[in-house]
Every structure is written in C-alpha cells, then in structure tokens.
C-alpha cells in the first residue's frame, strides 16, 4: 500500500493535463465538430500560460489566458466550418502545424527558465482524510480542478438542457433545428467551451505536469488525446479514465527508465503503438457491433460516434 498510494496520486497529478484536453475534445466532438488542432493548441497554450505567468508573476492569470487562446483557435475552426463550409479536418491540420511552429518561434526566449508556480489549495477538513486526503488535497489548483471537472462535465452533458441540446445538434442538426435549437450557435458554444478546456490542458503542461517551456514541449500528447476521446466513446467519464490509464502508463515508463538504460529515446514513443492497439480493440465494439454486447458491458466499452461528427451543417433553403 505504501508503494501504490503515492503512485495513485502521482497518476492523478500527472494526468491532469490529459484530463482537461480529453474532456474538452469530448465536449467539442459532441457538438459535431472535430477539433483536430489539439496538438498545436496545447503547444501554443502551454507557451501562453507560461509566458503570461512570468510577465505578470501570476500563474492563475496564465491559466486563464491559455484557456482564452484555446477558445480563439476553436472559434477559428468552427467559423471556418459553419460560415465558410470548409473541411474541419483540413483547417484543424493546418492550424496544428501553424500553432506548433508559432510556439517554437515565440517561445525562443522562454526555453528552460524558471517562473512562478500555481497556488496550492488548502482545504482544512478534507486534508485530514486518511490516505488520500493529505496527498490529493495538498496539490495545486489545476489537479483538483481536473478531478472536479469529470463529474461536472458529465452533469453538464447528460443532466442539463444545454448539454442535451448540444448532444442533439451533434447527433442530428436538422431534426434539432425543428425543435427550435440553433445548430450553429450550439456548435460555436460547444467548440469554444471545449477549446477553453483544451487550452487549460495546455497550461497544465507548462505550469504543472512538465513545468517550464521547451520546443515541442507537450511531446505529441495532443494526438494521443484525440485517440483517447475515441477510446472513451465520447463520454467524459470514460475519456478521463482513458487519460488516467495513459498517465499510469507514463508512470510505469518513468519507473522503467531507471532499469533499462539506453532505452530512453525510444520510451516516449511507446504510447503510440499502444494507441493503435487500443483503437483496434475499441473499434471491434463500436457502432453496430456494440448492440450485440452483453448489457452489463455496454457502459464500459464501445461507443457510438456523434451522427454529424465532422460533417458540415446542411443549409435548408
């Protein structure tokens, strides 16, 4: 127990950025928009957060501005989609490259320098819970928020009218329009909220999980997050569990690093074959095949893609 208990907290702490990003992307995709720019967005928002935190000497302000930049990029994608009828994937891919390179260019002066750290939360009663209390409630604010976000996102999507409207637009924009919902507005809002969370995920990289800034700082985890969303079957709780699974994997890899010397360069790339294998496994149970699953297993594996995901809204004339 003494060995696993700190590991458990480390996984939660290490996975905080991934949790923000996968939940943000889940909300985005639920409204029918694929924000493929995740990799670029988290790079540029990680830089934004770090740079703002240094210049204002206030880490929370850094997190906020990272969220705003994330929303801005998301807004570009959704406007290109609904106003200009452009391919979401194409715009997302170009923005990935653009934002990634922009972060290298603008981040030149921020490479490996120290900066302010995030405030720690101090919850007087919860801190005294045995085992998890001292470690979980003695983390910085982003870790706590990432844990709280999971039930909040679930509640938002499945228990509020707004979440229902969002999901219905993602499923079938035409029929939700006949129910008096504005599909364009829902797509814009869903994407902006999602983009804000993805941006905070970027901030959680540079201000918490991998403190500081270097070129290509987020190490391709943006792509992994896109795959985790599919793994999670477009459900925020399962997506977050997927993020924790990858966090656990990261931790194992880190611990193995001391055992296998000379293997260091290859180690960061291991998540990717794992990603392919996970997707193969998941695709076996997605879509139609999911119906044949036993009832008990249905909430755990497989998922159905939002009906209008990646498709442009059809204009009725």
């Amino acid at each position: 127990m003494t060995y696993f208990e700190p590991s458990f907290i480390t996984i939660i702490s290490l996975s905080a950025p991934l949790v923000f990003v996968v939940i943000g992307e889940t909300i985005t995709e639920r409204s029918g928009v694929v924000n493929l720019s995740v990799e670029g967005t988290i790079l540029i928002t990680a830089l934004t957060a770090f740079a703002v935190a240094i210049s204002t000497n206030n880490a929370s302000l850094g997190v906020l501005s990272a969220g705003l930049v994330g929303s801005l990029i998301a807004l570009i994608i959704v406007l290109c989609d609904i106003k200009l009828n452009m391919n979401q994937i194409a715009v997302g891919f170009v923005l990935t490259i653009l934002c990634g390179k922009l972060s290298s260019f603008l981040g030149q002066n921020y490479v490996r320098i120290p900066g302010p750290s995030l405030p720690k939360v101090d919850l007087p009663i919860l801190k005294n819970i045995p085992y998890i209390g001292p470690s979980l409630f003695n983390q910085n604010i982003l870790v706590l928020l990432s844990v709280l976000l999971i039930p909040m996102a679930w509640f938002f999507l499945y228990r509020t009218q707004f979440g229902l409207n969002l999901r219905s637009v993602g499923e079938n924009p035409t029929s939700s329009m006949s129910r008096g919902i504005n599909p364009e507005l829902m797509r814009i809002l869903g994407t902006i909220i999602g983009g804000f969370l993805i941006g905070i995920g970027g901030a959680a990289f540079s201000l918490h999980a991998k403190y500081g800034w270097s070129e290509g700082h987020t190490g391709n985890y943006g792509w992994i997050c896109l795959a985790i969303v599919i793994f999670g079957g477009w459900n925020p709780i399962r997506a977050a569990l997927g993020a924790y699974a990858f966090g656990a994997f990261q931790l194992i890899a880190l611990k193995m690093q001391s055992i296998t010397i000379g293997f260091t360069q290859v180690l960061p790339l291991i998540p990717f074959p794992l990603m392919i294998m996970t997707l193969i496994f998941i695709q076996m149970f997605n879509g139609e095949k999911r119906r044949k699953l036993p009832v008990l297993l249905k909430p755990i594996i497989g998922g159905i893609e939002p009906g209008s995901l990646g498709k442009p809204l059809k204009k009725e004339k």
């Binding site: 792509w223 795959a227 599919i230 790339l269 990717f272 392919i276 997707l279 193969i280 695709q283 076996m284």
Partner: peptide, 22 residues
C-alpha cells in the same frame, strides 16, 4: 480494423520514428 487512417497513420509515424532512433 476500421481504425481511422489519421490515427493509424499517426501511430505508424511514431512507430517508425521510434524504430529509426532504435
């Protein structure tokens, strides 16, 4: 396996770059 070519391709990109470093 119905793995979308974006993810399959990306995964294979990183596998290839792991292989080349190895």
């Amino acid at each position: 396996f119905n793995v979308h070519e974006i993810f399959g391709g990306l995964g294979l990109d990183f596998v290839a770059s792991g292989l080349i470093v190895y």
